[in-house]
Design a protein around this nucleic acid. Structure first.
Lengths: 347, 347
DNA sequence: CCCCCTCAGGTAAGCGCTTTCCTGGCAGGC
DNA sequence: GCCTGCCAGGAAAGCGCTTACCTGAGGGGG
């Protein structure tokens, strides 16, 4: 134990079975070339005895085909990406592909490094699942790396808005933002606060743009104090809610740019004894699985996350020459649950 | 576009720079062997011009060292595994290791296949994060495959109880179950129902065993009707809660064997207008991040999930000969929040 | 009865790197 | 001035497979 025995190779198996390596290779790969049954059995026996496991690197090198696919997400443990990943995985597995999941942890440099890494590993495709950045140098470098990868035969599909011309499935972030805003204004709210994600993410700006459009259409506008930027997670939402409350005494509704933040906001509101939706309406974005289980259940804008994953992987894996890039949109849908209501009369 | 240019190789770079492949290799790998500055620049320029990205498979094959590590989980999108994975990733990244995440989707056959796959890819270590199975043939095959992998120099660390002698970090499932049961009995409950996970998972039986021990100690016992088995997720919990309610009219408390199921049970209870904890106490297990955000906040048994991941990866990556396997325990801790209370007097 | 075709199986040339070992040029010492 | 030692750089041998091509034996037809 702990003693590292010499690894059995194809050649060992061949020697043991008294055949050539070519024959062994054909047998373990179910090559179409016919092989006598007796030989096959001898070889299989040798494989078992030597506990031979073919070296995948050597196989990859010798074969021409690329088989694995890479996925770059911000963080799999974030429910948003977890859902998308589930969809990605499903399709990849159905195609018999191994998926390599890379977490960039929202670090653009790491994202770049992962593109190179997946390129180096000869993956057949890369799916970029994170939001795009408002950062020209990074964006340009990313695009360049993806192009190089594509020029060597790799396929790329991105989720969301990226400065990369190619296959993409883009969630309707702007329309979704509009839906959330419109719902709130229609209910009669006029003093609305927004909990936004990091400024440099396109997801943030797109959703926010939708919200602003709704405001405009209802003759309102979102002032600087009405928008609090924070991290796209529960703690970010909680902190942003506190800021918003402090800066906008008359607030009657809050729109959070994702559900995690909304849940954080809910916690903040609960601590302060502010009834939702009695004294404050709250709407989220994404419709993560747990959103129905908080109290009150969260009104939100639903994005078909798993489906987005499915479609992105399908694009990445689609056959044939791609004359023109395919851009699919994933519809946002308003889901009204218990956390939104008309504003109460001022007491 | 879409036109697959011939991929630049090390040899191309060497030719372009007018040096040997050995020199290029040394430069791009920062080999300790000194190289004249002029050459280095020429080579780097050629690398950039040709957009050379080294073939990782060829590198792996030529080098002796194994660098990536593999992780096999049931499902990354399950919060339980998402948390563990976060810990695993962090440590691996700190060690500069690429992590390959494999989702078995709770299919033992797929788990076996992934062990082979990770073996084939020459990963330095495999971390098995899912629960063990009560299924002798599967268990034996898994153990055999892991042994073979280890005999070739691979390192293995498992999380939870598996029939594999080796490094492990095992969550205190039995003690945790005891903690949950004891808390309920101490509050005065005597009619307790249990929402259990799949019978064939060791996690289920271990937690249940703890619960039974608590019952015994309080002069009670858990009858067959008091235990409902279901899938380890929200829907499973919801269905199981309904069954329990139907079969046990006098029930005053429910222990769910994980938080997802507890959340499902909560939904069931809410639908039926059964107040928690007024008419029914509820306790979960794991303490997932969202457990504080449901209403009432969930009492539960906390497992340090991310830490478990950290420790498992540290074990897998530890240096040196491993004379004896290291088995670490991860302590379960009772966390009482709002979903548990003394039983109300019968109305 | 011989020739040629067929086909199972083997031979060997890579796949794209790393690394050991070797070479040739230069400086320093006697 | 010649020999030794040192060092930058190159030649080439693999790493463990796959596969195009070759070989030799057996069978059928003329």
């Amino acid at each position: 134990m702990g003693y590292s025995a010499p690894v059995a190779t194809l050649a060992d198996v061949a020697r043991r079975a008294g055949v050539s390596t070519a024959t062994v290779s054909r047998i373990i790969n179910n090559s179409p070339k016919p092989v006598a049954e007796a030989l096959r059995e001898r070889v299989l026996a040798a494989v078992a005895e030597l506990q031979f496991v073919p070296n995948a690197n050597a196989q990859q090198l010798a074969r021409a085909d690329r088989t694995a696919v890479g996925v770059i997400v911000h963080d799999v443990s974030d429910p948003y990406f977890a859902e998308i990943t589930r969809g990605l995985q499903r399709v990849a597995t159905d195609h018999g592909r191994l998926v390599i999941i890379c977490n960039s942890y929202r670090d653009p440099e790491r994202e770049l490094a992962y593109v190179d890494l997946l390129h180096a590993h000869q993956t057949a495709a890369i799916v970029l699942a994170g939001s795009g950045y408002h950062d020209a140098p990074i964006t340009a470098r990313l695009d360049a790396k993806l192009r190089i990868y594509e020029s060597t035969g790799g396929r790329v599909a991105v989720i969301g808005r990226h400065e990369h011309a190619g296959d993409a499935v883009v969630p309707e972030n702007e329309p979704g933002g509009y839906l959330a805003g419109d719902a709130l204004y229609r209910l009669g709210h006029t003093a609305i606060g927004v909990i936004a994600g990091p400024r440099h993410l396109t997801t943030t700006t797109d959703r926010l743009a939708g919200l602003r459009r709704a405001a405009r259409q209802h003759g309102q506008r979102l002032g600087a104090r009405q928008v609090a930027y924070a991290d796209f997670d529960r703690n970010g939402g909680r902190a942003a809610a506190a800021t918003l409350l402090q800066d906008n005494p008359g607030l009657t509704a809050i729109a959070a740019l994702n559900d995690s933040m909304a849940v954080g906001a809910l916690a903040c509101l609960r601590e302060r004894g502010i009834d939702v939706p009695g004294r404050m309406s709250l709407i989220g974005f994404d419709d993560m699985p747990i959103s129905v289980d908080v109290t009150p259940p969260l009104s939100t804008v639903r994005l078909p996350l798993e489906e987005i994953g499915v479609r992105a992987m399908s694009l990445a894996l689609r056959e044939g020459e791609r004359d023109a890039p395919l851009v699919e949109h994933a519809a946002a849908r308003l889901v009204l649950r218990g956390s939104t209501a008309a504003p109460c009369d001022r007491p």
